[in-house]
C-alpha cells in the first residue's frame, strides 16, 4: 500500500528584512522533515509557537511551496512551485482551522459555505451540489434546516462542525487539522473529537492533527512528531513517544503539561504542606 502522504527532507526558508542597503536574513521555518502516513491513520504534530508546525500545515495543504525536498500524495510527487495547484490536487487535501469564528465568512449562508468547494473544484450540477451539502450537514451532526442560516447563528462547536463539513465535502484523502479543538470548551471538544473519529472510520480519512495539547494528542494520534525550532526532534508511534521520549525537549514538554491525576495532586499537596511546616 502506498502512503497517502510522504515527505522527504522537506524544508522551507523565509527571507525576512532585506532593504536596498542590506541583505535580509533567512529564517529556516522548517528543516529537513521526513515522514510518511498511511491511509486511515492520524499523525499528530506537536510544538510550541515558532516551532514551524503551521508552516508545515501550509506546505501540506498546498498553500505554500517547500523550498527543497520532495512531497508525495497518493504516490504522486507534488511541487506546487513548478506545476501550480490543480483541481485534482485540491480535492485530495483539505484543512480545518483553529478558530471557527474567523474561518467562516459571516455573510455567506451555511449552504453556500458547503457548496463552494464543489463549485470551484468539480463540475457537479447545482442540484447535486445542494443534495451533497445537505447530506454533509446531517453527517456532521447538524440539521437540514441549518442550510439557509448564517455563521453568527451558530455556537463555536457548531461552527467547527461546519468547517469540518466544508473540508470533507470533496472526499479528500488527507485532512489537515490545525488546532481544531483548542478554541473550544472541554465538553464541545469531546464532541468534535468524537465526530472526527466517526468520520475517520466511515471515510477512511487520514489526519494530520496539529496541536499543542498533549492530552488530546495522546488520545487521538497513531503517530506523533514533536517539532522544535523547525526540526522534528522526535518522531515515532504514540506509545513509543509517550512512554519513552528520547529527546530532552520532549521530556521538557511532558513535564510542563499540567497533570490532573489524583496521585499528582496528592504529591503536590504533600509538598505544599511540607513547605508550610
Amino acid at each position: 500500500m502506498t502512503a497517502v502522504l510522504e515527505a522527504r527532507n522537506i524544508s522551507r526558508d523565509y527571507h525576512v528584512g532585506g532593504t536596498l542597503f542590506g541583505a535580509g536574513r533567512v529564517v529556516h521555518a522548517v528543516k529537513n522533515l521526513s515522514f510518511s502516513l498511511d491511509r486511515g491513520r492520524t499523525l499528530a504534530i506537536v510544538g510550541e509557537s515558532g516551532s514551524g508546525k503551521s508552516t508545515l500545515a501550509r506546505i501540506l495543504t498546498l498553500i505554500d511551496r517547500q523550498t527543497s525536498g520532495e512531497l508525495f500524495m497518493d504516490g504522486a510527487a507534488v511541487d506546487i512551485g513548478r506545476t501550480g495547484v490543480t483541481r485534482d490536487m485540491r480535492r485530495k487535501v483539505q484543512i480545518v482551522f483553529q478558530n471557527p469564528y474567523g474561518s467562516l465568512n459571516p455573510r455567506q449562508k451555511i449552504g453556500d459555505v458547503l457548496m463552494e468547494p464543489l463549485l470551484l473544484n468539480t463540475d457537479m450540477p447545482v442540484a447535486e451540489r445542494r443534495e451533497r451539502a445537505l447530506q454533509m450537514l446531517v453527517k456532521v451532526g447538524l440539521l437540514p434546516e441549518h442550510f439557509n442560516r448564517y455563521p453568527h447563528m451558530f455556537s463555536g462547536g457548531q461552527r467547527q462542525r461546519i468547517a469540518i463539513a466544508r473540508a470533507i465535502i470533496l472526499n479528500p484523502s488527507l485532512l489537515v487539522l490545525d488546532e481544531p479543538v483548542s478554541a473550544l470548551d472541554l465538553s464541545v471538544q469531546a464532541q468534535i473529537l468524537n465526530l472526527l473519529a466517526d468520520l475517520q472510520d466511515e471515510f477512511g480519512l487520514t489526519y494530520v492533527f496539529i496541536s499543542h495539547d498533549l492530552s488530546v494528542v495522546r488520545y487521538i494520534a497513531d503517530e506523533v512528531m514533536v517539532m522544535y525550532l523547525g526540526e522534528a526532534v522526535e518522531y515515532g508511534s504514540r506509545d513509543r513517544v509517550f512512554e519513552a521520549p528520547q529527546h530532552a525537549y520532549t521530556r521538557t514538554l511532558f513535564a510542563a503539561t499540567p497533570r490532573a491525576d489524583v496521585e499528582s495532586i496528592r504529591a503536590r499537596l504533600a509538598r505544599k504542606a511540607a513547605a508550610a511546616a
Binding site: 473529537l193 468524537n194 473519529a197
Partner: peptide, 20 residues
C-alpha cells in the same frame, strides 16, 4: 463528573463521553 469524564486523559473507550 461529566466534566472530568470528558477529559481525553480519562478516556476509557474509543469515544469520549459528552456533556449534554
Amino acid at each position: 463528573r461529566a466534566l472530568l469524564a470528558a477529559l481525553p486523559e480519562n478516556a476509557t473507550g474509543d469515544r469520549l463521553p459528552t456533556i449534554a
